[in-house]
Deep mutational scan, measured.
Amino acid sequence: MQRVNMIMAESPGLITICLLGYLLSAECTVFLDHENANKILNRPKRYNSGKLEEFVQGNLERECMEEKCSFEEAREVFENTERTTEFWKQYVDGDQCESNPCLNGGSCKDDINSYECWCPFGFEGKNCELDVTCNIKNGRCEQFCKNSADNKVVCSCTEGYRLAENQKSCEPAVPFPCGRVSVSQTSKLTRAETVFPDVDYVNSTEAETILDNITQSTQSFNDFTRVVGGEDAKPGQFPWQVVLNGKVDAFCGGSIVNEKWIVTAAHCVETGVKITVVAGEHNIEETEHTEQKRNVIRIIPHHNYNAAINKYNHDIALLELDEPLVLNSYVTPICIADKEYTNIFLKFGSGYVSGWGRVFHKGRSALVLQYLRVPLVDRATCLRSTKFTIYNNMFCAGFHEGGRDSCQGDSGGPHVTEVEGTSFLTGIISWGEECAMKGKYGIYTKVSRYVNWIKEKTKLT
């Protein structure tokens, strides 16, 4: 034993070699072989497995989906700052455009905790909710729209109204504003409101030439003092309507412009014939205590009207009353817009006519005020429907199939267009061939041609 100890002390290297040989010859039971080890760690190889990531292109799944990435790591994937920024906006807080917040056709661009709407022409605001041009839906104005110097929408209202708090709607500024039905039992019968379409306001006024200088022999019209197929109006439903009495009662109609003036057809009036105007009328054979009678003290036909040349060209006249009318729910003026808007309103496509005229061709006159909704007829169809001249200051309205029309005794009465609950004068009943005849239409004086003249002559002093 002493000898062994001496050998170990003198030859430590020998001992180490012996131990190493023993270990190498022993069977290893701690580690699995290569094949079995792979069965336990069965993990798919990654895209760049075996390579240094710093030297390969980034992978979106590896960089940002398996674990949260930084902007720089995302930049490695896209290799483009702009594309990385677009991805980053949604990656950080989701897609803010998912709810489609942009209105009126706006395009949404996502941002971090926010979004941006790219608005089409005519709109602005956070969600493109603000109209900035009158060309689109009248700028959301209830009545009139004008573009300011910086191309912003400025709404306005006709006389007797003021802008509401929203700067879009119009509200009454006087007790009985024009064009409004205020009798409670008839307010439910107000005709369907007309909503502004998209309009090209630059070209809204037709490029028409008034044929002022045409000389033409007097034409022989049949029954051209021209509501057939209409309905009984309720008291106060058309408070701007008046009836004219002269040699015979209810020979023509008219509309209240203001307390002192009536507008009617020029062919209705004769110099030297006494005319009485009755406002607030409903049943011409009954006294309903809503009527107001006034005498006409002055007749002003349009300066281009000449019955000797043509009885229905420039067929418009103004009547001055001896005493002002007292405005109330049964006696209310009709609204008159400017030339541009009167023309736009007419193009809405349908209007209402009213009167006490004959209820059928050569038949009896109506006792109760009649009204009828009539569609506008395109000019080409209008011209083809008659052998008589249709001037540019006239328009056609009615039904091709016949059966409904204005008729004798309705002449001078109103053709009105309702705009968001307020009625505007767009025409004056003038003439036609018979009444409600198939293929024939009622012919009306186009008020847009005469609004400046009306307003100039009827100013209240």
Results as ranks from 00 to 15, higher is better:
121 F>C: 03
384 R>K: 13
419 V>W: 10
73 E>C: 03
11 S>V: 13
423 S>F: 14
182 S>K: 05
339 K>C: 10
249 D>V: 07
346 L>Q: 09
241 Q>G: 06
368 V>M: 13
430 S>Y: 02
416 V>N: 03
57 Q>C: 04
107 S>E: 14
451 V>A: 12
414 P>R: 01
425 L>K: 00
337 A>H: 00
270 E>D: 14
266 A>F: 02
442 G>K: 07
398 G>C: 02
98 E>H: 09
395 F>N: 00
11 S>L: 12
14 L>P: 09
33 D>G: 12
147 N>L: 14
209 T>P: 14
296 V>E: 01
196 F>W: 13
387 K>V: 05
450 Y>G: 01
265 A>Q: 03
197 P>Y: 12
81 T>K: 14
177 P>T: 03
173 A>H: 10
421 G>Q: 08
458 T>W: 01
440 K>T: 13
242 V>H: 00
258 N>Y: 02
122 G>M: 04
42 N>W: 06
287 T>E: 14
454 I>M: 05
314 H>Y: 09
163 L>A: 03
249 D>A: 09
295 N>I: 06
170 C>Q: 00
111 D>M: 08
48 N>L: 11
394 M>I: 09
6 M>E: 05
176 F>I: 09
373 R>E: 07
341 Y>F: 13
187 S>I: 12
406 S>V: 05
26 A>H: 03
244 L>M: 07
173 A>P: 01
143 Q>F: 03
120 P>W: 02
389 T>A: 14
26 A>Q: 02
250 A>Q: 11
332 T>P: 00
188 K>I: 12
285 E>K: 10
145 C>R: 02
27 E>Q: 14
233 A>G: 07
30 V>S: 14
433 E>P: 10
368 V>N: 07
21 G>R: 05
154 V>F: 13
442 G>I: 10
449 R>L: 10
140 R>E: 14
188 K>Q: 11
308 A>M: 10
233 A>C: 05
432 G>M: 05
372 L>A: 13
242 V>Y: 00
440 K>M: 05
125 G>Q: 00
374 V>S: 03
390 I>D: 08
353 V>S: 06
397 A>N: 01
422 T>F: 03
411 S>K: 14
432 G>P: 14
39 K>V: 05
323 E>F: 10
127 N>W: 05
124 E>F: 04
416 V>C: 05
387 K>Q: 12
133 T>R: 09
221 F>D: 13
153 V>K: 10
255 S>Y: 02
239 P>T: 02
124 E>H: 04
57 Q>G: 11
431 W>I: 07
171 E>C: 04
113 N>E: 14
118 W>E: 02
459 K>N: 15
395 F>D: 01
159 E>D: 12
